Simulated scan of single mutants.
Amino acid sequence: MENPFESIIERLDRIEKLLVSLVPTEAAMTNAHFNKEILTLKELCSYLELSASHVYKLTSQNEIPFTKRSKRIYFVKKDIDDWLKKYRQTTKDEIETMAANYTIRNPLKW
C-alpha cells in the first residue's frame, strides 16, 4: 500500500518546480532592462546601482540625460552608456603615453 504522504510530497515537489519555472528570478528581472532601449527610474537605479534619490538629484541638476513625459522620467540606455563613458578615468599607462607624445611634439627650446 502506497504511503499517502509520499504521494502528497511528490505532488508538492512538482507544483513547486512549476511555480519556480513560472516566476521570473531576480537575475532574470535584473537582466531584462539590459535589453531595453528606454529605462524607467527603477530600472535605471538597478542598472547603475544607485539610489532613486541620487538619480533624482542628478536629473534635477541636469547632470544625467533624461526625458520627461508628464510626471514620469525616462532614460535612453544608449545616452546613459555614453554619459558613463564620458567619465572614464585614464589609466597610468595612457597618461604616460600622452606625456611622451606631448614631449615629442613639443620639445623644449633652449
Rank of each mutant, 00 (worst) to 15 (best):
F75V: 03
A28F: 05
T90F: 07
I8K: 13
L41R: 12
V23F: 03
F75K: 01
A28W: 02
L39F: 02
M1K: 05
K92H: 04
E16A: 14
F66L: 04
L50H: 07
L84E: 05
D93K: 12
P4D: 11
F5M: 12
S70C: 01
L58C: 07
Y74P: 01
F66H: 12
A100K: 15
S46I: 10
I38W: 09
N106G: 07
E49A: 14
K68Y: 00
M29G: 00
P107S: 07
R11K: 15
L39H: 02
E96S: 03
D81V: 09
E2H: 09
T91S: 15
T90N: 05
D82N: 13
I73A: 08
S7V: 14
R88C: 07
S21H: 03
I8A: 15
P107L: 09
N62M: 08
S51I: 01
L39C: 05
L84F: 00
L58R: 05
Y47W: 07
V55Y: 04
E94D: 12
Y87T: 04
L58K: 07
T103Q: 14
K78H: 05
P24A: 08
I8N: 08
R14D: 13
L84H: 00
N35A: 11
V23W: 00
F75N: 02
E49Y: 04
T91Q: 09
T25P: 07
L108Y: 04
K71Q: 10
D82F: 00
I95A: 10
I9T: 11
A99W: 00
W83G: 03
N31M: 11
F75I: 02
K42L: 10
L58S: 05
E10K: 13
D79C: 07
D82G: 00
C45L: 09
Q61M: 11
N31D: 14
D79K: 07
N106W: 10
K42C: 04
K92T: 09
F5C: 02
S21K: 15
D93L: 12
T40F: 04
E16Q: 13
H54R: 15
E96Y: 02
L48Y: 02
I104L: 15
S46A: 14
L22Y: 06
I73Q: 11
L50G: 01
R14Y: 01
I64F: 06
K86C: 04
E43I: 05
L44Y: 01
F34I: 02
T40R: 12
F34N: 12
I95N: 06
N106E: 11
K57W: 01
R14N: 14
C45V: 09
V76T: 02
R105H: 11
P4L: 14
P107A: 06
R88K: 15
K68D: 01
E37I: 02
K57T: 06
D82M: 10
